[in-house]
Design a binder for these strands. Sequence first.
DNA 1: ATCGCATGATTAATCGTTTAATCATGCGAT
DNA 2: ATCGCATGATTAAACGATTAATCATGCGAT
Lengths: 343, 343
Amino acid sequence: MSAATVSNALSGKGRVSAEMVEKIRATAAELGYVPSQAGRALRTGRTGVIGLVLPDIANPLFPQIAQAIELAASSSGYGVLIADSRGDVSTQTKAIERLIDRDVDGLVIVPRRGTRVADVGCPVAVIDTPSTPGNTVAADHWGGGQQIAEHLKALGHRRVLIIGNNPASNVQNDRAGGIRSVFGQGLHTDTLWIEPLEKVSGKGCPLGLAGKVAEGYTAFACISDLHALRALTELQRAGINVPEKASVTGFDDLIWSPVITPALTTARMDMTEIAAIAVAALVKAIRERDPFDPEIGAPVTAEKSKVPMHLVVRQSAAAPPALQPVHTTATAATSVTEGGHQS
Amino acid sequence: MSAATVSNALSGKGRVSAEMVEKIRATAAELGYVPSQAGRALRTGRTGVIGLVLPDIANPLFPQIAQAIELAASSSGYGVLIADSRGDVSTQTKAIERLIDRDVDGLVIVPRRGTRVADVGCPVAVIDTPSTPGNTVAADHWGGGQQIAEHLKALGHRRVLIIGNNPASNVQNDRAGGIRSVFGQGLHTDTLWIEPLEKVSGKGCPLGLAGKVAEGYTAFACISDLHALRALTELQRAGINVPEKASVTGFDDLIWSPVITPALTTARMDMTEIAAIAVAALVKAIRERDPFDPEIGAPVTAEKSKVPMHLVVRQSAAAPPALQPVHTTATAATSVTEGGHQS
DNA sequence: ATCGCATGATTAATCGTTTAATCATGCGAT
DNA sequence: ATCGCATGATTAAACGATTAATCATGCGAT
């Protein structure tokens, strides 16, 4: 039989009789035939590969993102080519170029701190923050901040310290903004940015949280679980028990959050859904596009661009000391309400 | 000019005059010409892409591995396609098949817990443990264990508890074995495997380390920083200060290790070198192979298959209580000898 | 002057798939 | 009986690079 008929049969495109299709299917399966991607790519201009560009692979959030994107892509029949920006903007540009040179059909970009994505010659899905122009889809970081803040407020906290890394990040800003929006009226918040502090005091320096507790802060709302971990260990080390004497919350539900003591109360993104939406929008754009036309275009858009975050209540946040029954400050609160790690 | 001449000029293969090469180089650069991977792949049978297969992308070690492999591959001109096994062996097989169907030139596989890699139709580099048959290159986990143990022994520890996840893992076994080999003569070690424990007590359950301290254990040598973190927070929570009353060590120097309090003493792999060796061996095998011959073969071998680990001394391990000057048990030991995170 | 040969550039075939265009066949309608 | 048409399969061209084979040219040697 002819190659054309085989192609038509397997793709279901041309006019092929039912029995022919069946026969071809059978023989193909028997011979273990798989169409060559190279030949197809050459003819159609589509490689079936999308590129994943991340600000910094070393970021602990990367596993979640990569896993979700890989799953979404592979179930749409796409492969995922990774590129590392190593935190550097020029490297990011280089990495994108390398991916383009490899003829990726599209890109998923998690931009570094509000980097505007330069116009590339293929569809692009951007995962940043709903408030960023050009964003395709992202978690509702602001809303997540609100949830954390509502939780702390309901527990009775009135003075909370927000701990972040760098205010230049859209994501971090949104999270902090969400928290402040809840504590705005009369209650007190202040913000500690770690990166500027480390510029002065060196990497991994103490954050001076014991002093903050002395100043009357009862809760530390960290912008990431990484900071929460740092805060939590520093407090425990200083003899300030969490959550009896001070509460700590995080963001992202990173891998260690459920297994430390006390387990972290945190807000997590629904990466699976975000990835699914991003990839779906990207694939749609790829399908509609003429692969040989190197048009430059704005990032693709999705119907749903804001995915709610989920509050995960564990043990690291409780009522502030003044409101606690006296005996609980002595009791080791090792009861577990939410144990496992959501995946 | 003809396409053939261009091809010869850019690849430096055929007979082309020097001035012609120069002219072609110039025009190519001017036009922004990049040879189509698809056309090349079709003709040569090589895609310039290698697949990276990981046991579980969610593993916190993944960023280090992926970053190192991506760097090594891209500096050899290769792209990296990722595949996630999601911890499942059959998914791992599926993932490998998908990569093969995408015509990868080779694979880097970090096998899940001693999975023997099934014969695939392309060169494979395996990163597991030096003691595993078929291993291409890996960190000297046993030696790393010895370094950790020597350090603890020198500090004066005589009873250490090894904390691991699952004895079925070659890596974990080697690390634990290295530790035991040092403490073998007369000194005491015992091993706590978390996964079996969690089967009974539930995920994220307490490890009962306070009890172990009461039994006389003065140090907890964890097989991974993730376990070390769990141990450290559990101890601190129970009022057992680290490192004054108990020492904790880890493995891998994960992202949080330098920023927690006390910062973790740990042993890290030289992933950059491991990745460089693995990719170099793989690329060599790819170059030597006839791309159209679907021969099945054993994993590729490298000259150097065992890369030493590096001991990173921070604050989480110190002399056991009995040997400490009395006042230090009261003093908060926040002095910093090694602060930053090595990348 | 002619041949041989080295050098440099071009031609043509090939990789495997897709897709438009073409060809063959059979059936119903006039 | 013949034409038209629908159906099903085949042919041919094209994607873009590589590479063996071929062609053109000039120079030194006989």
